[in-house]
Simulated assay, not measured.
Amino acid sequence: MDFKPIDRSYFNQPTLYLAESLLGKLLVKETEEGTTAGWIVETEAYKGPKDRAAHSFGNRRTKRTEVMFGPAGYIYTYVMHTHCLVNIVSGELDKPEAVLIRAVEPCMGIDLMYERRGLNKKKVELTNGPGKLTKAMGITNEDYGLPSFHPPLFIAEGRMSVNIEIGTRIGIENSGEAKDYLWRFWEKHNAFVSK
């Protein structure tokens, strides 16, 4: 399969729209071991300065959050509990927002995903969570700041239409009213959705 990165202009849409429209798109990672790809089936939006669950809440600008203050479409990775998580920067310049990719459905490089995640895993366990998918696809903190519209880590066109469900985000219980925002999007009835 030959995947073509999506045009950079695609990322210039409001964060909630981007989080929803990424469902069904392909996340592709090229490495020396090979290429892996998966249809995005779950995302979460993080709307920066006023979102208590966002790393950039209150316009917090650190070495870690710096990329979010730049243009949309770049990769924001960070490590949480030893797992690397991958986000796409969204929103306007100097308005630090991002979309977390929570789960993908494997489409290419599945044998390589098994090598990275363990041969004893069920297929559905390979990428049904934000830390699982990065490990399976070889996405690391070294991908921080890369464009997601250019190899080696990029978004490509995927499935035409998906049935979408909306709910609250996961794992942010200590974020006040932000824990109740309906900013998580997932493909209905897809087995690879994390929860």
Rank of each mutant, 00 (worst) to 15 (best):
R116T: 13
E92M: 09
E92C: 07
G176A: 10
I101F: 04
R159L: 15
L23R: 00
G158D: 08
L119G: 02
L146G: 06
L27A: 07
V86C: 11
E66S: 11
A191Q: 10
T35P: 00
I155E: 07
A103V: 03
T127F: 00
T62G: 10
S175I: 09
E105A: 12
N87D: 10
P147W: 15
I110G: 03
L27P: 02
L27Y: 03
N141K: 15
H81I: 00
P152G: 04
R60K: 14
K121Q: 05
F185L: 01
E115W: 05
C107N: 12
A45M: 05
P106Q: 08
Y78G: 09
G145T: 10
W39F: 13
E157N: 15
A136M: 01
Q13E: 00
L146D: 05
S194H: 09
M137S: 02
Y114F: 15
G38W: 05
D51H: 01
R184G: 12
F3W: 14
T168G: 10
G167P: 02
I75R: 01
P147L: 15
A45K: 00
K122H: 09
K4G: 08
H150W: 07
T65E: 05
K63Y: 11
L153S: 04
P151C: 05
I166M: 07
A53I: 10
G38V: 14
I75H: 01
K135V: 07
I110P: 00
E142K: 11
T36Y: 12
I155R: 12
E20N: 02
Y78C: 13
I75C: 14
L146T: 13
N59Y: 15
T140H: 09
E30V: 12
E66P: 01
K63T: 11
N128P: 04
R64A: 15
K50F: 08
S21W: 06
D94V: 06
D180V: 03
L133C: 02
V99T: 01
I101Q: 02
I166N: 08
K95N: 03
D51I: 04
I155G: 03
E105G: 09
Y10E: 07
N120S: 14
T77Q: 13
V162E: 09
K188Q: 02
L153G: 01
V162K: 05
V89G: 06
E20S: 03
P147F: 15
H189G: 08
A98F: 07
K122I: 09
F149K: 12
V162S: 07
A19D: 05
L146Q: 12
G171A: 09
H81P: 03
Y46V: 03
Y46A: 01
E97A: 00
P106L: 09
G109W: 06
V41A: 05
K4Q: 14
D111S: 05
E32D: 11
Y46D: 04
M108A: 08
L18Q: 01
M68E: 02
K122Y: 12
P71I: 07
T82S: 13
I139D: 10
K25Q: 13
V79D: 05
G176N: 13
V193D: 04
Y144M: 10
N163V: 11
